[in-house]
Design a binder for these strands. Sequence first.
DNA 1: AGAGGCTCAGAC
DNA 2: GCTCCGTCTGAGCCTCT
Length: 994
Amino acid sequence: MDDRKDSTETNTTWDSLDDDAVLSFINKLDSHNQIKKNNVKKEVLTDIDTDVDTENDDEPELNDKPQEGQSNDDMLYASIRSSQWSSMNDSKFINYVNKLTQSKQFDTTIEVENTSYNDVQLLSSPILPGQRKIEIETSDNNNDDDDNENDENDENEELPYDQYDNYEDYFAEKNRKQNLQGEELSKFLKANDDSGNDYPPIFKNCAIHVNGRTDPDILQLRKLILLYGGKYVHYLSSKRSVTHIVAENLPPRKRIQFGNCKVVSPKWIMDSIEAKRLLDYSLYRIEKLNDYGQQIIKFPKRDIVEENGEIVDDNIDDIDNDQLSQELSQELQNTGIDATHPNFLKVFFSKSRLHHLSSWKSELRSNFINEAILALQSKKIPQNSPQRIIMHVDFDCFFATVSAMKHNPPIDINTVPCCVTHGGKSADIASCNYIARQFGVSNGMWLSNAKELCPNIVSLPYYFEEYETISKKFYQKLLSMDINTILPVSIDEALVDISYLCSQGDQNVEKIVKGIKEGLDSVTKCTLSCGAGRNVLLAKLALRKAKPNGVYYISDNNDQIDEFLKTVDVKQLPGFGKKLYQKLNTFYPNKEEITVSDLKKIDKSSLINTFGAKMGAKLYDYARGIDDVSIDILKDTDKYTRKSVNIDVNWGVRFSTDPDVETFLSRLANELSERLLNIKMIGTSITLKLSIRHTDAPIEPTKYMGMGRCEFTSKTAKLGVATRDSGVLGSELKYLWRFMNVEPKELRGVGVSMNKLTQDDYNIDNKQMKLNFTSNVNLKPPITNKSPSPESYHSPVKTSRSRTGSPVKDDPEEQIDWDVFNSLPPDLQLEIKNELRRRKLQSSPKKRKLYANDKDIANLLSPKKKKLTMELEKEQYLSPHKIKEQKQKNIVFQGIPVTDESILLKKLVAWMDYTLIDNNELNENDLELFRDFMIQILSSSDTLRFLRIYQTLKRRILISPIQESKQFNKWNEELESLKQLIGEQPLSDFQFKF
DNA sequence: AGAGGCTCAGAC
DNA sequence: GCTCCGTCTGAGCCTCT
């Protein structure tokens, strides 16, 4: 089975083969393996649904009714006990498992029991490759449990089920035998292991082996483990794939293949060559975190250095079992990798080309520009050249060139069509070379589409570090020249003022530019192109002409410029995209290609009418070759200071519940806070941007984990105080999320944006500031090492005027020392945040605008909307014979059917908060409507739902920061009377806790 | 008229 | 086997004051 891996690794250089050769090679191997497989009579259940055993005689009935107070595990085990599962054959068992696990009664989140490593008895150890052959005498002395043996032998090897009265006894006996085997193996290994390695316990009783990648089956597998009684699962994972899962305390059962997952016995592990290889592979790889950081077991005494330079901590005592279990269940919960994973952001950004592009750019804008300013100032280049010459220099298909060069073996960019992608059919092409472009391939295209156009195209991986390295050389080289100024455009592109250089020597601009290009070529070992002209516009247009691998200069002569512009397609103008083209098209409805000369014919006022004041004027100038944009970084420093910090995630966003989203928002807040810290800035305005699946778009877009067609919406909150405190940002984002009222399942993208930025210098100044809201919260002065001024104890809230010594109550400008804030206990923090919110809502009239949203509960509860609801409610009396479900659908509150429970609860909670926290009036009519609604639920015998709603509100009111107000009392009364309602119900078989 | 929020387009 | 569709800026248009 592993022959394939070996031969590919040792005998073949994959990279030298073209796609076809690789394919035929793989096919050969596959057919070879197929033959081998067919010689073995074995049940492989790859497609469970289609292979249903019709003989269901001994298949237990599934009890579909979940019972109150039982955990999922309880139910599973109860289900196992009550069934004769042990007497089933594999196919029946799997079938049964499937039914069980696919039925809705099992939550997908199953707690994994924690065990400490110390409690685990070392019964066996992994087998090192190339070591002596292992021979172990086992009690039943069967040697046929390896991969090639057949099922009937397996059957014989099993303990006879019928000899045992119950599962427990059978289990105990089987377990005893297994343990015996394990002990012997352990003894043997200990006796023969002279390596001095102290391996952690890996195998106890049984192992589940997942042969291949993480896939949707993993969830099923997780349940399977539970069904087998596995209490704790270790899993060893390599990059992107779980290769091995080892579960403790699995009751023995013969090997089972489940999809591509296997449950194997320890004996199999002992005997199987495949297992040894797997272990070897795992042991080697295990040191490396997989993409999502699910590194589980750390091996001591092994000095393996992580690829990206991080040295893995080898201390086995550091293993955090809680975290381990958590990560594991998280992994198994997710059928794919999506934004619910704790490490999603980190991994996602590390692989996102667009993110890299952006961070490189901002890095250049801050660090490089500063460096360049110093370098340029020290050079004292005369700025009084007779003519200004701007050069736009850019790598030819940068990513493709560098990836091809750094690939092993290197790809000849000039002969082989290639592109840079993550691989896969809907992977975006980040960059493709000019050979590929001849086939019609272009950047941004999906790989599958590119392959249709160019079947031989080679897909290269990203080498982000290499791009940076080469870019550095590029910029250093540019800086070393006598340039007037330089404006970095992106990692591979810069605008350079070469006026001074061109005024020296023989003053042949084209020759000078060519010299620069060749210098850059040789430094970077790539090819670049340069365009030059009297301004940025012309430089950019010239660059288009120069590409690839060339230079072009538009002479500084009005006639020649006009001549050049005539033929230029308007789409080449910088900033002129699809939408502007559509607008321009109204002037020339039938023209195929609109050129700049066509644009020039349109008078200025028409342009301004069509494109707006600024854009119209700009286009008017562009048509005449005029562009006065400056690239002088020495002069306009203000222009290059950051105005906003954004985080956008529009890939992998798949949430099912509000808490999922809120957790994610917290992570975004942390990330945002970190990024702000990096640039030492704070802000007063935060925006939440949501991408919501378009109603016409399919639930799952064609692009894997993509966003598909979406509608966009955003909402801004003013913070009232400049901060980057992640807690504040997080709760602000959650607050916005709540008010935007979006169904979590429909979310396809989330973005946050921090605006109104200022340099963070207040942090240094105000270490001593304290918090205190005298009315609500009694704060003890925090203990500080330094002795604060007496004043700071009494005026802990910093106001703009407090500096001058007269703190003013309720000043909206108040500022909080977040360091002090963070040192407070969480409950106090919460109180303070709520207090802040209350003040802000009252002090900032803009905030009210949130309530003007027509989705908001406050408006839904207005009389106009109420009528609508009444009409909806009337409908339900029209058809008395509807089935229960339909009847329930007609129980509606504010347009939300009771069946949309999560939306309903969200709305109710928002309503409650609106009245409690934000201290708005609780309308008597609204309350009545709500009461009617609850009574309807109760009379439809949907007591559980009634309870859930009740309990949600009850919990909410219990944690409400406002515990004493008119509204609070009203709500309390209302909930109390709802509670009474249940008491009147005839149904008494429910038990509830209030 | 000016300020500010939301949205969109465009660039890499 | 899928795949990493971010981030900044400026303009236009709207509403509120």
